[in-house]
Amino acid sequence: MASATASGSGSKGNFNMVLFYVFLIGFVLVSLFPLLWVFKMSIVTRSDLFQSPVTTLVAPPIADSYNTIFANPDFRRALLNSTIIAGITTIICLFFGAIAAYAIARLRFRLKSVVMTTILAISFFPAVAIIAPLFLLFSKVGLINTYWSVIITDVVFALPLTIWILVSFFKELPKDLEEAARVDGATTIQAFRKVIVPLAAPGVFTTAILTFIFAWNEFLFAATFLFDASTQPVTVAIPNFATVYTVDYGAQAAASVVVTIPLVILVLIFQRRIVSGLTAGAVKG
């Protein structure tokens, strides 16, 4: 039915198609405009940046702004910190998430709806409500200013997403294979490890991307628990650049672009998977 709607006949159909594509192009441009504009800001000279009226055409691009920020050891450190925090969070989340999701998707037990409700409740949980007690707790056990303070909290808030998506992926896998494994004498754990995990690899991979993006973008916990540039991720470091590079807007723009590029690449390559993961839990089909 879809192809029938798209290919109208006659001039009215053609006109509708043109309108449709104009709408699409407008939509894509609005979505991408800030990234393109800030990118443009990052590759012009400072005098061009302040020119009025605002110039739209780019003179030969220059890399000064990028040189400035990459020369800053704090920026390089922040990129590394973000990678470490998001990477470890993803691994821990996938480990606990996959185990829990398998039980929820495949095994029967009575408290399942209680468990699911608890997990769902966390995804609506206002994180700001617990920063004070956690700050006190982490101070007591010496976790302030360490990666772990942020990794632990990120894991808790990313787990609902991880579990939710994995449950829907696990449910789609054919049940016969596990049953065959059971008949052959495999335990629940063996069936999970030897049959489900390899089959679910694409779903697990999608979940990993989404969890990574979530942890990479986290700001509140990092801003609360990390005081020192040695552990701060990019989300905390970059807003600070507004005071470090007061009027060097080009450097601020360049920093924003650098941080976004890994995400844009992930999105471009895996857009189909990301969409299926994002919509998996929310839509029953």
Partner: peptide, 11 residues
């Protein structure tokens, strides 16, 4: 469509 969504909010 996904690009704005994937941006860190602070960025």
């Amino acid at each position: 469509v996904l690009v704005p969504w994937a941006f860190p909010t602070v960025i």
